[in-house]
Every structure is written in structure tokens, then in C-alpha cells.
Computed example of a mutant assay.
Amino acid sequence: MSAPIAHGGGITAVAATFGGRPEDWLDLSTGINPCPVALPDIPARAWHRLPDRHLVDEARCAARDHYGSGEILPLPVPGTQSVIQLLPRLIAAGKPVGAMDDTVAVVSPTYGEYARAFASAGFAVDAVDNVAAIGIEHRLAVVVNPNNPDGRIWSTETLVALHDRMKAANGLLVVDEAFGDTDPALSLAARVQELSNLIIFRSFGKFFGLAGLRLGFAIARSDILARFEDWLGPWAVSGPALSIAASLLRSDVTSIRSRIDERCAGLHAALMGAGLRTAGGTALFTLVADARAGDIYTHLCRHHILVRKFDYAPEWLRFGLTPDGAADRRLIEALQRFER
């Protein structure tokens, strides 16, 4: 099994090195909305009872309307990480792992758990830098759109053409839209019914700022969703999470997008004022490229501010959004103290 991947977060560990109470740190290492929405009322029975089918159905219908998936009812899952780890099982069905064509393609660099899940299951992983490099030899292809961590975007036309190539070779296309809520026009959710070999993953917690719920949705044809549901087992998603999803996915999210845009502007102003060069990003995070990235990372940690560094790209730092103007000023002051 490959070594665990270091993700964003992990304040407890870094505070043990640089000091301070974890709750006093400014965590900019994730791509999560730092202004969580107010929780809707949760019926007491959602806490008291195992999640009944009607709770699942209500969440699925709300997700269908929110994501615009037509007749396809998205499947609630306990975080999209749970179904990422099921993908090797999905394509291994009926064929021994280790066959000549057990190769998958992951447009990279990107979220590292895709390559890790397939490699751990015995698949060869081609880390390609462009969808054009994906060929008939690949049984499954993964595209994160918008991409994490550089924010690269692939047009719907490009992804539909890739799907058609994959389908012609009896392969599957996975499009991870974890950061797609801030720009719904990028989503392929409305096309899933006609694109039968397409699987879409959507994150719930990033946009709504409720990552602790561990909730996501898979959107695909019914037989694929049925397999995921079977493999996850009964009651995979808690009743409170389903209840919250049904309420928030039916709400007007205009103010959430506006708040994210405001926080994104504050972050960009802070980074620009520090003379840092933006190399990409989405509305929920900004990627900075700087030869001094390692020193900047350590300097910010000494000021109890955590950003995301990358072992495969030592010149990169990813900055998540600050929650308010006071946090903007805290970041600006820390960056101003950095010795250039």
C-alpha cells in the first residue's frame, strides 16, 4: 500500500511543531468555504432514528434539482473519498487485476487520492498532463474540473468528446466537480443521462462550509449508483446530514456565492500586496508560485497561519479563503514581516 498523502488541514500536528492552540491558528490550507452557512432546523427524529428511506429520497431529489441532473437522482455518499476508493472495484469487476489493460489515466497534478486508490489496488496509473493523452488503452480516466490545485478548467465540449472516446473503448470517465458549485456552467450533470459512461462526483461540504458532515454525491447511470450504494452498505450517510442536505440544496445559494467572491477578492488583494504571483486557483483557493515557497510556508507557520505546500511542486503554495477582513489583515501583516 502506498504512503498516506498529506492533505490540507492537520492543524493539531502543525501546532505541535510551531506552538499555539489549534483553535487560535488561521487555517488557509483547505479549499473549504470559511464562512459556513447557518444550519437549518434538524428534526429530532433524524438524530433518534436510523436514516429512513424517505430522508435519502428527499436528499436525492434536492440534489437532482440543485445539480440539474434531470432524471438521474444523485446518490448521497459519506464524502466523495468513500466512492473514490470504490472506483478500482468498479472497473475490476469480471476481470482479474493485473491484466494487460489494467491502466487508468489521471489528468495531473491533481487530488492525489485517485492515483493512490488505483495504485493500491494494483492498477497502473498514467499521470497525464492533458486529456488528449488519454487513449483506448485506459479503462478509466479521471479529470478534476476545476482542477485542484491549479484551477485548470476543461470545457464541456472537450469532456464530452473524451467521454465518447472512452465509451467507444468500453471505458469510463470520472469527472470530479468538487469545486464546481461556484461556476455551475462548468458542470456536466445535465448531460449524465445521455453520457452513459460518465461518473460525476460532487462535494457538499466545500461550498456550504460544512466539511465535517462528510457528505458528497455521485451522479451516474443507475446500475453504477446501485453498485456504489451496495458496496457502501446500509445507512452510509447519517440522518442529520441527509436532512441538512435536503434543506440547503433547495435554498437560494446566491448569497453564498457572493460571500465567497468577496472573500476571494480579499485574499487576492492580500497576496498582490505581498508581491506574490498567482499561478491559478478557483473561487475557493488561490495557487501561488514562488521560489521562496518553503520559507514563506515556515514563516507563516511561525505566525500560526497554515497554508498548503506540495512535495511534488516545492515552489507552490495554495491559499484558502480567509473568513473575514480581520483575517485578511492578519495574513497581510504576517506576509509583510517576511524577510525578502
Rank of each mutant, 00 (worst) to 15 (best):
S2V: 11
I5Q: 08
A6N: 08
I11E: 12
G19P: 11
G20A: 12
G20E: 13
G20Y: 02
W25T: 13
G31K: 02
G31C: 11
P34R: 04
L39S: 07
L39G: 00
H48I: 07
H48N: 13
R49E: 15
P51I: 07
H54L: 03
L55S: 11
D57R: 10
E58K: 10
A59G: 12
A62Y: 05
A63S: 09
H66K: 07
Y67T: 02
S69L: 10
I72Q: 01
Q81K: 06
Q85H: 04
Q85V: 00
L86K: 03
P88T: 04
L90V: 13
A93G: 11
G94C: 08
P96S: 03
V97L: 06
V97Q: 06
G98H: 07
G98F: 01
M100P: 15
D101T: 13
D102P: 00
V104A: 05
V107H: 06
S108K: 04
P109G: 10
E113Y: 00
F118W: 09
S120P: 01
F123G: 01
V125R: 01
D126Y: 03
V131T: 15
A132S: 14
I134C: 13
I136W: 13
E137K: 03
H138V: 04
V142A: 05
V144L: 08
P146D: 05
S155I: 05
S155D: 08
S155C: 03
T158Q: 15
V160C: 11
V160W: 00
L173W: 10
A178L: 08
A178E: 12
L188T: 10
V192R: 10
S196C: 07
I200D: 06
F204I: 09
G205M: 04
A211D: 15
R214D: 09
R214P: 00
R221N: 11
I224H: 08
F228Q: 04
D230P: 00
L232Q: 05
L242V: 03
S243W: 01
S251D: 14
S251W: 02
D252I: 00
I260T: 06
D261Q: 09
L267K: 00
M272E: 13
G275F: 13
L276F: 01
T278F: 08
G280I: 02
A283K: 06
L284G: 06
F285Y: 12
L287R: 09
V288I: 15
V288Y: 02
A289R: 14
D290Y: 15
D290K: 12
A293S: 09
I296V: 12
H299P: 07
L306Y: 00
L306Q: 05
F310R: 05
D311N: 10
A313F: 03
E315P: 00
L317I: 05
R318G: 12
L321H: 09
L321R: 04
T322Y: 05
P323F: 06
L331Q: 08
I332N: 08
L335K: 02
